[in-house]
């Protein structure tokens, strides 16, 4: 059957969207997050957090240092909810495939690096961690992996008979991951998710440019690290590499990323920090995500909810880390992403 290439109009999503809208009311508002950031002490923070939906998980841990458990369970709940509500499992599976690719990277690094990295695995993927691990360990076992993972694995082991530099593992698997995502989205026909992926790819490519230039990296590495299928072609991106950094914003003036690049670059040059880049990247994606608010029937609100939730979890983790390490409230608030709430 030919996929319909259109924004969500599937009334079958009425229940899912109704539920998501109700859940969205429980996302932490900007005001509440500001209050949490100003909590001052970890006890006060936990008390405030106890008034939110995170209360459920707070009782399960004995010390605030176990915040990763709390946040992990929350994320697990969201991913499971997506699976339950979705009528296009191929699309929602993308958000679980991420973890498969992540596990593949960990397994490869474990295999080549020789150090066990048990705690780096994430169990939310579509295939069990053990299977990924075993397939990497015994290369013949790769048949049991789905084709997209097998291809990624083959391109790492094929290019590097010897131990590869770890960055290549990441770069190759990441590229395979986004190629898989884009092909799924194209097959299923979901313009919202396609646009979102393209935005992410563009942002990653742009940031890679600045990250490699900042670290005085090589052009050949940048070209290898570029992800395909963005709105900005990889050829154009690699032509930017030779430019003076100050000229890059002007070259990108026809793209929606010009503001992010201009301000992010200024911050990078004065403060030696990528903070503003990261904040504006998140704000950009959030702006895109907000389109889903206008869609009443479809998978879009589900995807949007997942993104909002991820951002919320990141924010709470920041506050946890900040308070546990006595970071002043001002610094903490500066880091709260502006666009998201």
């Amino acid at each position: 059957m030919e996929a319909q290439w259109e924004y969500g109009d599937d009334v079958g999503y009425a229940y899912a969207v109704g539920r998501i809208r109700a859940l969205e009311t429980r996302l932490l508002t900007g005001e509440r997050i500001a209050r949490l950031a100003e909590a001052g002490s970890i006890d006060e923070f936990l008390r405030l957090l106890g008034e939110t939906q995170y209360a459920e998980f707070l009782s399960k841990v004995s010390s605030p240092w176990e915040y990763e458990t709390i946040l992990g369970e929350e994320m697990e709940g969201v991913v499971k909810l997506m699976g339950d509500l979705s009528r296009d499992p191929a699309l929602t599976d993308i958000f679980r495939l991420r973890y498969d690719f992540h596990n593949l990277k960990v397994a490869l690094k474990e295999n080549y690096g020789g150090e066990p990295m048990d705690s780096a695995y994430i169990t939310l993927g579509t295939i069990p961690v053990e299977r990924v691990r075993e397939s990497v360990r015994e290369k013949e076992g790769a048949v049991v992996l789905p084709s997209h993972l097998r291809a990624a694995l083959a391109s790492v082991t094929g290019v590097f008979p010897e131990t590869p530099a770890p960055k290549w593992i990441d770069v190759i698997v990441d590229r395979a991951m986004f190629r898989t995502f884009v092909s799924i989205v194209k097959r299923e026909g979901c313009p919202f998710l396609y646009g979102l992926l393209q935005g992410e790819i563009d942002l990653i490519n742009i940031l890679s440019l600045f990250r490699i230039r900042w670290a005085n990296g090589e052009k050949s590495f940048f070209q290898e690290a570029l992800l395909e299928d963005g709105t900005i072609s990889t050829d154009f991106m690699s032509s930017l590499f030779g430019e003076n950094l100050d000229a890059v914003p002007a070259r990108l003036s026809h793209t929606p990323y010009v503001l992010m690049v201009t301000e992010g670059l200024a911050h990078l040059q004065t403060q030696e920090s990528f903070l503003l880049f990261e904040k504006m990247r998140e704000a950009f994606l959030f702006n895109y995500i907000r389109r889903a608010d206008l869609i009443a029937f479809g998978i879009e609100p589900l995807i949007a909810y997942l993104y909002k939730k991820e951002s919320e979890i990141r924010t709470i983790r920041t506050i946890f880390v900040g308070l546990l390490n006595n970071v002043p409230a001002e610094t903490l608030k500066e880091r709260m992403s502006g666009g998201f709430f």
Partner: peptide, 24 residues
């Protein structure tokens, strides 16, 4: 360390470990 602290808050523990678990 301050910078690293915030990296550890922007990325989940598993992702951070994956990134730096095999140093070059």
């Amino acid at each position: 360390f301050r910078r690293f602290l915030f990296v550890s808050s922007a990325m989940s523990k598993a992702y951070l470990e994956e990134a730096v678990g095999f140093p070059s």
